[in-house]
Design a protein around this nucleic acid. Structure first.
Length: 422
RNA sequence: GUGAGCGUGGCUCAGUUGGUUAGAGCACCGGGUUGUGGCCCCGGAGGUCGUGGGUUCAAGUCCCAUCGCUCACCCCA
C-alpha cells in the first residue's frame, strides 16, 4: 500500500518547517488585523463552477468531484476563496463589521499531473479582505503578503498588473483578439488555440516568437478605463510609500475568471517550472455573483509546499531535541526515573527515557542522537545519595543535582537554559 | 491528457561485454570502555534487484508488458 499519486506524507523533519510557515503566517496576519476562519473542504460543485469559471481548466478537468449518497454533486475544494466567500455570505458577515479581514489555512485538491512543488493535495494559506474597493486595501494586502515572505527569510519578486473591470476589459479583449488574429500564423500551436479559449493567456506564453509578438500587442494597461487607471496609480503610490518593491508586468494573467483590477504574483526562480509561491488579486463582482451583497474584495493565496521547499533550499534546520534525557541504571533507578520523567513533563520540560533496559553507553548514545540538551544519570548510588549527575550534552559540563520533590536544581538548570547551544 | 528520464537494504548510490554466496557510504544494533554521547576501531542485522512474462546453460544486467516515481508541457499556489 502506498499513498495516492500526488498525495504526500509530511514526516517530522519537514513538519517542523510547516509549523514555521504556519506560525509565521498567523503572527504576521494577526498584526495586520486578519482573523482566522475555518471552513469545510467539501462543497457543492456548483459553488466552484460559478466562482472559478465554467470554462477554466480547474473546473473543466481538475476537480475532485463525486456524487454522494444523496445523489448530490460534491467537490473537494480546488482553492480557498469560493468557500470563504460562501461562508461570508451565509453568515451575513458584512453586518459584523464594515471590512472583514479573513484568512484560512488548509488543503486544496486538484487532479493534475504531479510535479516539483505541485501536488494533487496541496496546502495554502488563503487571505481575503472583504468590503472595500479602496486601493489602499490592495496595498495593505500586498504588503502583508510581502511581509510574510520577509519574515520567513525568503526572497521573491512581486509583480503587479491590472486586469481592468467589466467596463474596460471587453474593449481590450476585442482589440487583443483582433490583433492576434491578424498575426495568427506567427503564434505557436498552443497560442492559436488560446486565441479562442483564453486570449489573455497568449500574453503569458513563454515561446520566443509569441513573446516578441506580445511586445506589440495591445496592452491592457493602455485600455484601462479612468477609474481602473486611477485605482492602479493609487495602489502603486501606496506600495511605494510602504517601500514594498514590485515591478509592473502587463502580461501577467490569472487562471481564475473572477479577478478584476489589481492582480499580483510572488515569483521565485528556485522551484523549477513552478515559479509562483503566491498570487492573488481583486474580485469585485464575486460576492454578488455568489448570491451575496454587492461587496468588493481582494485576496491572495500562498502555497505552503512551495514555501517549505524554499526554506529547505535555504537552510538545514535540525529538529529540536528534548530538554532532558533520563539515563537510568537498574530497575530501582528506572522505576524512580519513570516517576521523575512524569514530574519533568508536568513541569513543562520535554523529557524522554529509555524503556528497553539498555546500558548506560547506549542510553547516552540515544540522548545524543535525539539531540537532547541534558542527560540526568541515575543509578543505585545516586538513589541512595539523593543526588544525580546532570550532564550538559552541548558543553560536556556535569554537576550534581538534588533528587527531592521540588526538583529545584534540575528545573532551574534545564528549564532556564532555554534551548541555548542546541 | 502529452513527452522524457529513472526504479538495487530505511536513505544516497555502485554493480564491467549476461557468469558463482549482490556491494559501499550514511542510518540502525552490539562490542572495544561490565557508570558517560559525539571521533576512531571491530562485529552484526537488514535486499522477492518495482512487478509479471520472455530469451538463455545462466538475467540486477538483454527483450516485452505493467505499475510506480521524477522532471517538463498544458494549467497553476
Amino acid at each position: 500500500m502506498q499513498a495516492l499519486k500526488g498525495f504526500k506524507d509530511i514526516l517530522p523533519d519537514e513538519a517542523v518547517l510547516w509549523q514555521q510557515v504556519e506560525s509565521t503566517a498567523r503572527e504576521v496576519f494577526r498584526r495586520f488585523g486578519f482573523e482566522e476562519i475555518k471552513v469545510p473542504i467539501l462543497e457543492k460543485t456548483a459553488l466552484f463552477a460559478r466562482s472559478i469559471g465554467e470554462a477554466t481548466d480547474i473546473v473543466e478537468k481538475e476537480m475532485y468531484t463525486f456524487t454522494d449518497r444523496n445523489g448530490e454533486s460534491l467537490t473537494m475544494r480546488p482553492e480557498g476563496t469560493a468557500t470563504v466567500l460562501r461562508a461570508f455570505i451565509e453568515h451575513a458577515m458584512h453586518l459584523r463589521r464594515p471590512i472583514n479581514r479573513l484568512f484560512t489555512v488548509g488543503p486544496m485538491f486538484r487532479h493534475e499531473r504531479p510535479q516539483k512543488g505541485r501536488l494533487r493535495q496541496f496546502h495554502q494559506v488563503s487571505v481575503e479582505a472583504l468590503g472595500a474597493d479602496s486601493p489602499r486595501l490592495d496595498a495593505e494586502v500586498i504588503a502583508m503578503a510581502h511581509q510574510l515572505l520577509v519574515e520567513l527569510g525568503l526572497k521573491a519578486e512581486l509583480q503587479l498588473n491590472s486586469l481592468g473591470c467589466p467596463e474596460c476589459r471587453p474593449g481590450h479583449r476585442q482589440k487583443l483578439v483582433a490583433f492576434l488574429n491578424r498575426h495568427r500564423e506567427q503564434l505557436c500551436q498552443d497560442c492559436q488555440r488560446r486565441v479562442e479559449s483564453n486570449p489573455l493567456r497568449v500574453l503569458d506564453c513563454k515561446s520566443a516568437n509569441c513573446r516578441q509578438l506580445n511586445a506589440e500587442a495591445p496592452a491592457i494597461l493602455d485600455s484601462l478605463c479612468r477609474p481602473c487607471e486611477d485605482h492602479l496609480t493609487l495602489v502603486r503610490r501606496d506600495l511605494e510609500a510602504l517601500e514594498v518593491p514590485y515591478s509592473l508586468n502587463p502580461f501577467m494573467v490569472r487562471g481564475l475568471d473572477y479577478y478584476t483590477r489589481t492582480t499580483f504574483e510572488l515569483l521565485t526562480d528556485a522551484l523549477g517550472a513552478q515559479s509562483a509561491v503566491g498570487a492573488g488579486g481583486r474580485y469585485d463582482g464575486l460576492v454578488r455573483q455568489l448570491g451575496g451583497p454587492d461587496l468588493p474584495g481582494i485576496g491572495f493565496a500562498m502555497g505552503i509546499e512551495r514555501l517549505v521547499l524554499l526554506l529547505q533550499e535555504q537552510n538545514g534546520t535540525p529538529l529540536p531535541g528534548p530538554d532532558l534525557f533520563l539515563a537510568c541504571l537498574g530497575e530501582p533507578a528506572a522505576d524512580y526515573g519513570f516517576t521523575l520523567l512524569q514530574q519533568c513533563r508536568l513541569a513543562g520540560l520535554s523529557a524522554l527515557m529509555d524503556v528497553q533496559g539498555r546500558g548506560l553507553k547506549s542510553q547516552m548514545k540515544q540522548a545524543d542522537r535525539l539531540n537532547s540538551r541534558f542527560v540526568l544519570i541515575i543509578g543505585d548510588e545516586e538513589l541512595a545519595a539523593g543526588q544525580a549527575v546532570l550532564r550538559n550534552l552541548t558543553t560536556g559540563e556535569e554537576h550534581r543535582v538534588a533528587l527531592n520533590d521540588q526538583l529545584g536544581d534540575l528545573l532551574q538548570t534545564v528549564g532556564g537554559a532555554d534551548g541555548a547551544g542546541t
